[in-house]
Amino acid sequence: MKRLMNIEPSPVVKVFLTMLPFVIAVVVYWLASEARLSENPNDKLLPSFTQIAAAVERYAFVENKRTGEYLFWQDSAASLWRIGLGIGISACVGLVVGMLNGLLPMVRAGLSPFITILSLIPPMAILPILFITFGLDELAKVMLIIIGTAPVIMRDMQSQVTQLPREQLIKAQTLGASTWLVAIRVVLPQILPRLLASVRLTLGAAWLFLIAAEAIAAQEGLGYRIFLVRRYMSMDVILPYVIWITSLAFAMDFSLKKLSMLCFPWFHQGEAK
């Protein structure tokens, strides 16, 4: 008998083991929901799958009588726009500042400690300041995402640049490269896959800030809707929304990973499959 740590599952067993926790979760929910509903058909805590399906139908496929819009898709679009804009700006700012910090000792001396301190400010604590300065509309929500994620990406990019082998940078100089050319032809292409990795890791925080901001002040958005229907204990709406947010987050993470593997194959060699 091999040691436990050396036993690998066969492909079939692997698929089975992957599916198992999901199936168990669904079954447990279903049993619990059945039990509660049989006692009290008006129970709102654990809605049945048919109730959830009806809610999805109502929100996603029936147009709002007053506005003629589909709430679910409207919410999704608003949230995706905010998080996309926020994380996009964060990534750009993080890349530029991180590269400047990593490559130029003069900039690093002035900016690096400041950014370190900045990144330690809890973003939620300054959310009121954002609402006061930027108003209650889109800008404040996007700013919260930027303030929450940009310093982390900046610091990560800086550390990634400084971790590039010094030999490469010296080699480039002996080949006649200026600081600018080292930046765009040696550092930038090597740092881009690391930027994608960094964005993937900060996406979780970005969703957190988005939903928090939407919960406090918004007219639409996935987070806004969840906190709105909470007042009526509409678990049949909250649950599919949470699952939808999770799927979106997963899709973003997955596509960033695939994009990185597609564009930077040299970066992913030797990675554990």
């Binding site: 010296i170 480039a172 080949l175 490269a177 040696v186 970066f267």
Partner: peptide
């Protein structure tokens, strides 16, 4: 600078460029 070429024990080539690009970059610089 360009007057002095260097070959280190390791890490003196650019991992994100193929062989041809690695050599061409010297003059592109």
């Amino acid at each position: 600078d360009e007057e002095r070429g260097i070959v280190f024990q390791r890490y003196s080539v650019f991992p994100h460029l193929n062989v041809l690009q690695n050599v061409m970059i010297a003059d592109e610089f």
